[in-house]
């Protein structure tokens, strides 16, 4: 075979390979939707993070605005310190409320940010003061049964 035809085929092959990698990165992976190029970090202390995992999304009004980077246990306050990386296009007021929510009944857990009304915005490295822990199903059922039992007691007496 001619060397030029072979070069052409190999060129097409390499181009197709790079194209496949790009398709994987942009269409299949999350490169197209979220890039960590420009972001700032926020911290939050949670009493209980439930099943939250690193790389879980951080959403505000349902839109993904960042990701959970790191989860550590703090030996001083005995709670979980969650580090989040937030897209720097989105700024949040100082009194933003962060809570751990679940998408759907059995879905993954994510952090929901509800913006407050403060004039001052959170800066990189700041700590979100108002947090709400994850709902733990057992605790919820336990509280429900406890309430039910005390209601019944009240009815008898």
């Amino acid at each position: 075979m001619q060397r030029t035809t072979m070069d052409l085929w190999v060129g097409l092959f390499v181009a197709a390979g790079i194209g496949a990698l790009l398709v994987l990165a942009l269409k299949v992976g999350n490169m197209g939707t979220y890039s960590a190029a420009q972001s700032y970090t926020l911290m939050g202390n949670f009493e209980n993070i439930g099943g939250l995992k690193p790389r879980a999304p951080v959403k505000s009004a349902g839109v993904v605005v960042g990701r959970v980077v790191d989860i550590q246990f703090s030996p001083e306050t005995f709670d979980a310190v969650v580090t989040m990386s937030i897209d720097s296009r989105y700024q949040f007021p100082k009194d933003t409320f962060a809570s751990i929510l679940t998408s759907g009944l059995l879905g993954e857990q994510y952090i929901g940010l509800a913006a407050g009304g403060d004039e001052v915005m959170l800066k990189s490295g700041d700590k979100i003061m108002k947090t709400n822990s994850a709902m733990v199903l057992e605790e919820m059922i336990g509280r429900f049964l406890f309430n039910k039992a005390s209601e019944n007691d009240g009815g008898k007496n």
């Binding site: 092959f13 390499v14 790079i18 496949a20 990698l21 398709v23 994987l24 299949v28």
Partner: peptide, 14 residues
Amino acid sequence: SMPFLAAMFSAVGI
């Protein structure tokens, strides 16, 4: 060749 072939395999498989 190998990485390109595997990338094409995955992309076509998806």
